[in-house]
Design a protein around this nucleic acid. Structure first.
Length: 628
DNA sequence: ATCCGTTC
């Protein structure tokens, strides 16, 4: 009887593991075939048994047996999780974090699954209950794990450090009674780092400290690259601010160039490239995204790469081939779109730059913050430790300038009344997102083409969200129905459809975020798409990384511009509506901007007034000040 | 699942 029960639970554990996706090389379909063939326990996993299954070749059977054997530490953790009624996927995070001894670690301290971010508080308590007969809410292991969990949550929201009081409140919300002693123990055991009044996870504390030390090293080691006369020879056509930026770059190991769109940041970088060529200096160009790198390359005529490529990223492990022990071979490095750099990437970058090299960060701190934690560019600027040149003169103002005036006001947190004379900026109020969607389609397919003679192919719709009536999915469906109806012959696309890339395929000629139009169908399984530099072949393997692109998210639009832009601000976007988001959206427009929103006019003004719902907290600004 | 980058 008891044997039957054990067998049954073993079958459940094994099948849950097989179906979880944790077994390398085994997908959902193949997992089901295994179970159908009564492969029910680890002992059944033999080459003989597996190759007997239809659809599994002898070679694959061998590979699956080997990968199963190699996954034993993972299996043991997953087994515990499954029996405890938790998601087996958490096992992968635990193994990543603790290595092959994870099972021992979680047995001694079940809440270590909370500390490493594998489980949430409720699931971790459930797991602890299974491991320990009578858990108590004040178990010190629970308290220490909650401290780390709170900091991990903070990092997800962009903070590299949290005020100790904020961490304490998180513990109180989770009914932990002895907040002070939990924090003290976490600090004493080196699980988190304490800086008067703030707490941080070691990775972020280390990243910010090494950035500060590394930047101070570069500033200290640098000498002047050239005399002012050399700069004059490349300064033709530049405004005084742009020349000042080059002088600062040449004089300092670390400098910063900021400014909104159209102020000539790229033009300045082009002059820096020329200067380096004249002086025979080794210069490299890089950016955090593939598209930004591609654009930098087009605008300067010099090869540019992603920071990950430049540093020799090793998969998603977060480690890089380049670093202190194998620095980059550069004398000048220019990094564009620096607002998108998080502290971990910045630390890796700075460590890989040799003494004496000059590092220039180019970016617009008013745009959306980095996905990863920290506020690298903003902290660098606020520290006042390195020269910052802000470009203010608009060189792209052949039209009325209403968009530029609005952008400048929004940058300051203001939402002025828009004069409607030349229709460069139009604001449309609606009652809900249904009406938003309706008005968007009307603007793109009728009003803007008719009133302003701008073709729908030059109009881009931007929205904060994917879902909902005014999200990308619904808007693309509605726009396709009017602009290019069809059955979606290849992978859902027809000739004439607008598409957006959602991943880098630089070898195939396009980058994440690029918007293009389908120019031809290539058989049943491939497309030709013009992303702006002539049609390029999108092979079958890349089709999964395309979506319809008449409407794209504001996040994905970062770095692109269009003749006309329709920005949708539906109420579903909620607290996402803030200054950096709206600023990023409206600065994508070159000649015309329509803003369609739901609710009362105060909605936009409030959103612009609020810098962000939850401000990020970080230590880099202070650290840079102290270290300079 | 409010949004989003990086690689082989």
């Amino acid at each position: 009887m008891s044997n039957d029960l054990e067998d049954a639970s073993q079958v459940n554990v094994f099948s849950a593991f097989a179906l979880s996706g944790l077994w390398p090389g085994l997908g959902k379909t193949a997992a089901q075939s295994l179970l159908n063939a009564h492969i029910n326990s680890p002992d059944d996993v033999t080459v003989k048994n597996l190759k007997a299954i239809a659809g599994i070749s002898p070679k694959r059977a061998e590979r699956l047996v080997v990968s199963f054997q190699e996954s034993q530490p993972l299996y043991r953790v997953a087994e515990e999780l499954i029996i405890a009624g938790c998601e087996p996927k958490a096992a992968a995070i635990a193994i990543n974090f603790f290595g092959s001894s994870a099972n021992t670690i979680i047995s001694e301290d079940p809440w270590s699954l909370l500390a490493c971010g594998a489980l949430d508080v409720a699931a971790a308590d459930r797991f602890a209950q299974y491991k320990i007969d009578d858990i108590t809410a004040d178990d010190s292991r629970r308290g220490k794990a909650l401290v780390q969990w709170a900091l991990r949550q903070g990092a997800k929201a962009g903070s590299t450090a949290l005020a100790t009081t904020t961490v304490g409140q998180a513990l109180e919300r989770n009914r932990f009674p002895n907040v002070g002693s939990a924090i003290n123990e976490a600090v004493e055991e080196g699980l988190v780092i304490d800086f008067d009044g703030f707490l941080a996870l070691e990775i972020f504390a280390f990243a910010e400290e090494s950035i500060a030390i590394g930047l101070a090293r570069l500033e200290e080691a640098a000498s002047k690259l050239c005399q002012p006369e050399a700069i004059e020879s490349v300064a033709d056509g530049l405004d005084p601010e742009q020349v000042a930026a080059i002088i600062q770059m040449a004089a300092h190991g670390v400098s910063i160039l900021t400014g909104g769109p159209g102020t000539g940041k790229s033009r300045t970088v082009r002059a820096i490239v020329e200067l380096c060529e004249q002086l025979d200096l080794e210069i490299a160009l890089a950016a955090p995204t593939g598209r930004a790198a591609k654009r930098l390359e087009e605008l300067t005529g010099l090869a540019a790469v992603t920071l990950h490529r430049l540093l020799g990223a090793q998969g998603t492990t977060g480690t890089f081939a380049r670093g202190e022990s194998w620095p980059l071979d550069v004398q000048v490095l220019v990094v564009d779109e620096a607002s998108m750099i998080d502290v971990e990437l910045a630390a890796a970058l700075v460590s890989a730059i040799p003494d004496g090299a000059h590092l220039l960060f180019v970016g617009d701190p008013a745009q959306l913050p980095s996905i990863g934690p920290g506020q690298f560019l903003k902290d660098l600027i606020d520290s006042d430790a390195f020269p910052v040149t802000e470009l203010l003169t608009l060189h792209r103002q052949e039209h009325g300038g209403a968009i530029a005036r609005l952008a400048t006001a929004v940058r300051r947190g203001e939402f002025p009344a828009v004069s409607n004379e030349d229709k460069e900026v139009v604001v449309v109020a609606t009652v809900n997102s249904d009406e938003c969607a309706h008005r968007v389609v009307q603007l793109v397919t009728d009003s803007i083409p008719r009133a302003l003679s701008i073709s729908p192919s030059d109009i881009q719709v931007l929205t904060p969200i994917h879902r909902g009536r005014a999200g990308t999915a619904a808007l693309n469906e509605a726009l396709k129905a009017v602009l290019n109806p069809g059955s979606g012959e290849v992978f859902g696309y027809d000739i004439g459809d607008r598409v957006v890339a959602t991943a880098n395929h630089l070898d195939d000629g396009f980058a994440n975020g690029e918007v293009g139009a389908v120019t031809s169908l290539e058989g049943r399984n491939a497309l030709r798409v013009d992303f702006g530099q002539g049609p390029c072949l999108v092979p079958t393997k890349d089709l999964i990384d395309l979506k319809h692109g008449w409407a794209v998210t504001i996040h994905r639009s970062q770095g692109s511009e269009w003749p006309a832009v329709v920005v949708v601000l539906p109420s579903e976007a909620g607290t996402m509506l803030n200054r950096p988001l709206i600023y990023t959206a409206l600065t994508r427009a070159q000649r015309h901007l329509s803003i369609v929103y739901a609710g009362n006019p105060g909605v936009i003004a409030n959103a612009i007034a609020s810098l962000t719902e939850r401000p990020r907290s970080s230590r880099l600004c202070q650290l840079v000040k102290e270290t300079r």
